[in-house]
Design a binder for these strands. Structure first.
Lengths: 250, 250
DNA sequence: GGTCAGCGCG
DNA sequence: CGCGCTGACC
């Protein structure tokens, strides 16, 4: 079973690249983040014409996630983690072949100590609460906006304690894995660097300054292969994230 | 001698199309309007590399005109018509081979009776004052924002008395021709419709709803041939105006 | 409809 | 840097 996670930073702008990725990889499920559109504007037809099903959790301008699947999947949840009293479109969960698959877009947190940072930690706690209640095989695919360890950062010193890398964020991430009994699929397979995001502002990709903040977290599924499609960062108008491709077996 | 006038509606967006037009037509002079940039931002190098000279009258965000020439031309005037006490970048005039060539971007006028409308009529009066003082062969090339006669409008009834077609605008346009002893080069050659502008909003081009508001007005030069490059309206991101190509002999 | 400015955001 | 938004202008 092939699973892909990709923060597209606007599906409007990246639709052609998404369709190309589906053509090239034919995954069982593709989890998209930052589609930045409402469900009404989602280009359902473009996917349907090519035989893909889509479940969408959208909103205006910001965030927004989707699950593109080869087989029809059953919607289980969308919006914020349950119990959060928040409308932000950051989750869509579905059941397919007895597996729960979730597209996840965690808050960025802006700056350590900010309101947004507190919100991010709280969001992770609620996500862990919810994921711990889910039964059976599970795959969380998405942009978690956390680089779990120093080896997930091109220059750990420079990023030391900064947003995406602070110890409370890393603890929240570890807590999610522990409480929901999830495995980081990439780290189960390799210790090599596997960056997935490069800051547009710093021209970070050209300089090799990446972070690993997109993840495939699985339970009841065995990671078999993982790779990052960095070639999608070399395209005309690339997203700042590259697609993360993971193969798992039951 | 081949002269072209084109309102490009942003040179930033249309640069490739302008360079293609120069390749295809190799005119003696190309008058551009609505370049929408300051002189500092003007892509001089792109023209110079291909052997073209440029004289630019630019401003931030709106308006802005330029003259692209095969031979180096001598700058005579830029800005507003003299005597207007106005900084709007709507004119650039130069002398080339003893001929005065001017790129003209007349005010739109918004609505009949508005402040902008009064300004437009005043602007035309000052343009006529100035053009009447110029000696020798003369060519005014540009977007005059006036359809001189009903046959210059796809649907004269619909446009009757409206902006671009009102009688005071037409009178101001005729007055310019009379006082500066200018000939409308297109109408000297043909009575056929020769639309140059189509409203984006109405999807006017697809419907054939054009107006002739771009003109080549000449003195001491004999019009030989005229055409509108409507194929430039079929391109990827077209301007709302098509290039007007005119050949004249001394 | 399509351009630009200026702003919020990451 | 590269998104989306609002608002002005044509």
């Amino acid at each position: 079973m092939k699973l892909i996670s990709w923060n597209v930073n606007s599906l409007r702008v990246r639709l052609a690249q998404v369709l190309q990725l589906l053509d090239e990889e034919t995954p069982d499920a593709l989890a998209l983040q930052e589609i930045k559109m409402t469900e009404e504007l989602f280009p359902l037809a473009a996917f349907a014409e090519r035989g893909w099903h889509a479940l969408v959790c959208g909103q205006k301008a910001y965030h927004g996630v989707a699950l593109i699947t080869r087989k029809k999947a059953e919607l289980m949840h969308k919006g914020a983690p349950p119990g959060m009293d928040d409308a932000a479109a950051r989750l869509v969960a579905a059941r397919m072949d007895g597996i729960t698959i979730v597209s996840v877009y965690a808050p960025n947190g802006q700056e350590v100590g900010s309101q947004a940072y507190a919100y991010k930690l709280n969001w992770f706690a609620h996500l862990a609460d919810w994921a711990a209640t889910l039964e059976g095989p599970l795959a969380l695919l998405g942009d978690f906006n956390v680089a779990p360890e120093d080896r997930d950062v091109h220059d750990p010193k420079r990023w030391q304690g900064k947003i995406l890398c602070s110890e409370p964020e890393r603890a929240a991430f570890r807590d999610l894995l522990a409480r929901a009994r999830l495995t980081d699929a990439v780290r189960a397979l390799t210790e090599a660097p596997m960056f997935t995001w490069w800051d547009y502002r710093l021209r970070a990709f050209e300089r090799g300054w990446g972070l690993r903040i997109d993840h495939a977290l699985v339970r009841g599924l065995s990671p078999v292969r993982a790779c990052v499609r960095t070639d999608y960062r070399g395209m005309e108008r690339p997203s700042d994230h590259a697609p993360l491709v993971v193969e798992v077996s039951p």
